[in-house]
């Protein structure tokens, strides 16, 4: 089958998922969607995307399985330690001046970045005056984030990152280990609101002082990136901070004028105009 007809079937499948279930992947970067759907199709043993579409439309379990392929859930705590070090050393001194804070972890996946932020804010004495919003489109991911349980095999990497990011104690102070997994302390969730939110279809819900959205926009095509950054711009107060992934930038996006470089190498931006 040619790519054109295959791409047509893929776009019909995405349209069907949107019409029926309101998950909107139509603005996602096609190369990755094509690859992820091919993995899903092969896993189910279907020959075509039309068969996969039939499965998705008539079986909610089919939908969930396809969603787990389409939503990439790979993260680690304190991923890119230099980013977290920059937040700690450069951004937090500004955030201290606010009487209360709202921080949005957009596309929080299974919570690794969220816990990294809460731990850092606790160590800097800001946790009690901060409300963290952790949002994702995947119900499965949000459930995992709320549990805060991670495979023991990942902890060495998390700990190394934590130390490199300027951690003040030992990461083991924040979790208990057992049965091949670690469970992060539930007190870390005291100031966290978990919520289903789509950067593709939902609106702004609060005024933030900082938004961290890392390795989420890479899965979007340019228009959807513009929409998401528009939401961030609208949501941030003047001089609020936006942190992106190490290889993401606001260059070439529609809202680049709303922001100035704050910590260039770490992709931390500061909102310039607005309220």
């Amino acid at each position: 089958m040619t790519n054109t007809s295959e791409d047509m079937e893929i776009s019909l499948l995405l349209e069907a998922i949107h019409r029926n279930y309101h998950y909107d992947f139509r603005g996602y970067a096609m190369a990755s969607v094509r690859r992820r759907l091919k993995l899903a199709r092969d896993r189910f043993g279907f020959r075509s995307y039309s068969q996969l579409q039939d499965h998705v439309l008539h079986d909610a379990a089919g939908l969930n399985a396809v969603l787990s392929f389409l939503t990439v859930q790979v993260s680690e705590m304190f991923r890119d330690p230099a980013y977290f070090r920059a937040v700690r050393e450069k951004v937090i001194p500004h955030l201290r001046t606010y009487p209360s804070l709202k921080v949005w972890i957009a596309g929080c996946s299974s919570g690794e970045e969220l816990y990294s932020f809460v731990i850092m804010f606790r160590e800097e004495g800001l946790e009690d005056k901060t409300l963290f919003y952790a949002t994702d489109i995947s119900a499965d991911a949000l459930k995992k984030a709320e549990l805060g349980v991670y495979d023991l095999s990942r902890i060495a990497q998390f700990s190394e990152n934590y130390q490199k990011a300027g951690g003040k104690t030992s990461l083991s102070d924040y979790y208990t280990a057992g049965y091949g997994a670690v469970t992060f302390d539930k007190s870390l969730r005291r100031r966290v609101v978990f919520s289903d939110h789509s950067l593709a279809t939902d609106a702004v819900f609060a005024e933030m002082q900082m938004i961290s959205c890392r390795n989420v926009l890479i899965y979007f095509e340019r228009d959807l990136q513009n929409r998401a950054i528009g939401l961030f711009s609208e949501s941030l107060n003047r001089k609020g901070f936006l942190g992106l992934g190490a290889k993401e930038s606001l260059r070439f996006t529609k809202h680049s004028d709303d922001f100035a470089d704050f910590s260039k190498d770490e992709r931390i931006y500061q909102k310039t105009g607005g309220a």
Partner: peptide
């Protein structure tokens, strides 16, 4: 390719990155 990212060319001649498995 940058370290730790997959590179996925798009048919409209841009390069997407991905942090998937």
């Amino acid at each position: 390719a940058p370290p730790d990212y997959h590179v996925l060319p798009e048919s409209h001649n841009v390069l997407s990155l991905s942090a998937e498995e």
